[in-house]
Write a protein that binds this DNA or RNA. Structure first.
Lengths: 154, 154
DNA sequence: AACGATTATCTTAGTTCTAAGATTCAAAGT
DNA sequence: ACTTTGAATCTTAGAACTAAGATAATCGTT
């Protein structure tokens, strides 16, 4: 632990955590409000977006991509299936596993609503100039990677 | 809508949202894991921290500070009260209103665990240099303010 | 082939919140 | 004083997950 512990350093960290939380909440609220108009949650949308861009994925792959528990994937896919937007497909090589895939209705819906969603996000992030967005993206990527890697030690 | 809509701009926004979400999740997971050792959630800790630094607050003030619904404040304060860490105090001038305040046990607990919490956060945010943290804080503050202000139009 | 360890998903029970409306009191206008 | 409007908190019902463990299939060793 190099120079940690000084009062300034600590306060800087606390402040960064606060603004990180607030920024995320505010932006996520916009995204959520946009998506809720179509009867979807952010997580459901996240699954649909992943399947839209990557094609069918094993449930475990999906789980890592959207960061939920295994039970969460089950729950979310059940809901999307009940809405007719996604479905499970058996995996040929492994009878334990299932692929998640969009139905044609799901594909149609995500294609229809994605542009408006992207625009809503763009508006929510409009407080930064393109250069600032670039910088922020770099820093947040670095921050997220470090924090995620340090997850293990206990 | 100035220059929105171009493909690069849209992708930049999507990417920023993704890294923002991931960074926040990863850091919040650390904070939560640290706090959970004391049987508290992040929201409960947030209330205690606010009351610790600012003294007794009206429930409505607390609500704005930690960004929950009114029902959420009721729920959280009930839980802290059940643990003996916080309590409600009547407001003299307005019989509808209550102050939330830490009990002496609550004050003792937050005083005890706050340093370790700050250290955990500092470690989680350690992927950035002090200068980078400064920059990130500035950008996120700007981003959050803009997104929060744009909340209204519907 | 049979065993144990691992992996993929599902199940059950419970936690932590939110949304919408009810209640209670205050403030302002008439 | 009365009435309306608004503000502060609470209540009820339910949504959206998580944690822990159960089930079932695969893989690697023996």
């Amino acid at each position: 632990m190099s120079n940690s512990g000084s009062k300034e350093t600590t306060e800087q960290a606390l402040k960064l955590f606060v603004v990180l939380s607030r920024a995320h909440n505010a932006v996520a609220a916009h995204a959520q409000a946009d998506i809720a108009r179509h009867g979807l949650t952010l997580m459901e949308f996240g699954i649909m977006e992943a399947l839209h861009h990557r094609g069918p994925l094993l449930l475990g792959e999906l789980q890592k991509k959207i960061l939920v528990t295994s039970g969460g994937v089950t729950y979310l896919l059940d809901r999307l299936a009940a809405k007719g937007l996604a479905e499970r497909r058996r995996c040929e090589h492994d009878r334990r596993a299932y692929y998640a895939a969009l139905t044609s209705e799901g594909e149609a819906l995500i294609t229809e609503i994605f542009p408006a969603h992207a625009a809503a996000l763009e508006a929510a992030l409009g407080g930064l100039t393109p250069e600032e967005k670039e910088t922020a993206t770099e820093l947040l990527r670095k921050l997220g990677r470090h924090a995620a890697e340090a997850e293990k030690p206990a």
